[in-house]
Amino acid sequence: MIKVENLVHRYDGDDVPVLRGINLEIKEGEYVAIIGPIGCGKTTLIKHLNALLIPTEGNVWVDGMNTRDTSLAGEIRRRVGMVFQNPDNQIVGMTVEEDVAFGPENLRLPPGEIRRRVTEALEAVGMGSYAQRHPHTLSGGEKRLVTLADILAMNPRYIALDEPTSSLDPAGREMVLTLLRGLNKQGIAMIHVTHNMDEITGADRIIVMEDGRIVLSGTPGEVFSGV
């Protein structure tokens, strides 16, 4: 379980906090959608879920581990995978398979195990035949799938996604959403940040953010009837 308690975040040099007291629990296997206007703090919030940011006030626990404890950052990041908005800047390998291997290599797994995970992760996103391709030759949708494989290769329990379908065409978007639902069925919790209402009807829970706060939280039925 991920537990966020009274989370306040202020970026260095800013007077006004981006997050002003967030309380949130995400259970294992849950599909949580976070929506809200641009600048409401949703991206900042999910960066806290895998210790990329440390709270200015309050606490974030991932399976009981406090993100303030820097010695736990590695384990927290293994459990909570992070998929950023622009896939191009998340791919660091010269080839697709080397990129997918990057995470497991950071976990210091033995070579055979890395190879096995890379193959599995690429198969899981349907990119098995792209292993040797260079990233700059891939389409936007293909790059997005590679970044999902990147995270899957680390065997995460949770995946936080920041606008994973922005910049994709309708077909690419449908493919990614289907993939996310499939992974969720296999037990991986999804924390899906978006500003697109159509994408979140299948979520277990919807969280509406505004101006650094959670203003509404509930099942899609509850939230949409409240709007």
């Binding site: 990329l52 590695g74 990041r77 990057f102 995470g103 290599e105």
Partner: peptide
């Protein structure tokens, strides 16, 4: 801007300076 995001993405995937293992032997 790219470098900022790349660095964050690497850290998000558990990159830390120092020893790591390699897929290629």
């Amino acid at each position: 801007l790219r470098a900022e995001e790349v660095a964050m993405g690497m850290e998000g995937r558990g990159y830390h300076r120092g020893p790591r293992t390699y897929m290629r032997e």
